[in-house]
């Protein structure tokens, strides 16, 4: 599932790059795989996906199984240990943290990827269109973004909960609704300068249609910043998920996410059970590093100026 979405993201970018001709895309691929850090990042990302998908097979406990002798006041006894089968220890409610980290990682990866994908696709197109067309269209499109940025989003989420009920789909819609706004602003800002460049003016002069110009000339030149911002969105969305779940729309107990696990671990920080924080935080950190190096590699590989 994860790898699928991941592949989809690659395909997405591939598709954007393709319009410039297969040889360039080949070129980018070669350049990406020449970048050691990027390849290492990709491997780590695949490893994390594998962990999220198959880690559950190695867990000795179900993620919702409570060991009543290791919970609450006795949580300090739930230390990570190979012999007890709780490789990562137990959480505050006496559940196996390994199984829960596996589960949390898969949900959070999905959240992060969906959030940045929506941002990349919707935000970039929206922003590039607004910036390129300019004038009144730009004004209206950007004022819509201003309004969406300022409305009390919490009520949108609560209404979604009340009207549609809770489900993972609603979580992704909630994430998607908010993730693209900043991306749109950034894409539009860059478009404003790009559209004055010679190659765009040349394209206009030769009568290329505006939509084609946006797809072929504007967006490829935006990709650098878009990819960087998309990797920045990953942690933001993973954390934002815990807020959505707080309202009751997203991931519900006994299911979990990295954000929820980190939150729970952080509240036990002074209680002598630091493993509850460090394992999920560690996975979060590794995921971010992997996303960064992959994103950075993609950026280098796809930079149209870097020939």
């Amino acid at each position: 599932m994860i790898t699928q979405t991941d592949v989809k993201m690659l395909e997405e970018t591939a598709h954007l790059a393709q319009v410039r001709g297969r040889s360039l895309w080949e070129d980018a691929r070669v350049r990406f795989f020449r970048n050691k850090a990027a390849v290492a990042g990709l491997f780590v990302l695949i490893a994390i996906c594998a962990f999220a998908l198959f880690g559950g097979l190695f867990a000795k406990f179900e993620p919702d199984y409570v060991d009543f002798s290791l919970m609450g006041a006795n949580a300090y006894q739930g230390v990570p240990s190979l012999s007890s089968g709780h490789y990562f220890g137990t959480d505050i409610d006496g559940r196996d943290l390994f199984a829960r980290t596996v589960q949390g990682t898969s949900i959070s990866l999905l959240v992060g990827i969906v959030g940045s994908l929506v941002a990349v696709v919707v935000g970039t197109l929206y922003g590039a269109t607004a910036g390129y067309v300019g004038g009144r269209t730009d004004g209206i499109m950007m004022r819509i973004v201003d309004i969406l940025m300022s409305i009390p989003f919490m009520f949108v989420l609560i209404l979604m909960l009340v009207i549609f009920g809770r489900s993972i789909l609603m979580l992704f819609i909630g994430i998607g609704l908010i993730s693209w706004l900043n991306m749109a602003r950034i894409a539009r800002g860059q478009t404003l300068t790009i559209k004055n460049k010679e190659f765009v003016e040349a394209a206009i002069a030769t009568g290329v249609s505006p939509f084609t110009i946006i797809l072929r000339h504007i967006i490829p030149n935006l990709l650098g910043i878009v990819i960087v911002y998309a990797t920045l969105l990953v942690p933001e969305m993973i954390i934002f998920e815990s807020f959505i779940s707080y309202l009751g729309l997203g991931v519900q107990e006994p299911n979990t996410s990295l954000g929820a696990l980190i939150n729970a671990g952080a509240s036990q920080m002074t209680n002598g059970t630091l493993w509850m924080l460090f394992y999920p935080l560690g996975f979060f950190l590794i995921t971010l590093f992997a996303f960064f190096f992959v994103g950075d590699g993609l950026r280098d590989a796809l930079d149209p100026k870097d020939r």
């Binding site: 919702d64 199984y65 009543f68 919970m71 409610d93 559940r95 107990e253 509240s267």
Partner: peptide, 12 residues
């Protein structure tokens, strides 16, 4: 947090 802990325990 504490309502959640109670609900998790009762559920189990």
């Amino acid at each position: 947090d504490s309502h959640q802990s109670v609900a998790v325990a009762v559920g189990q």
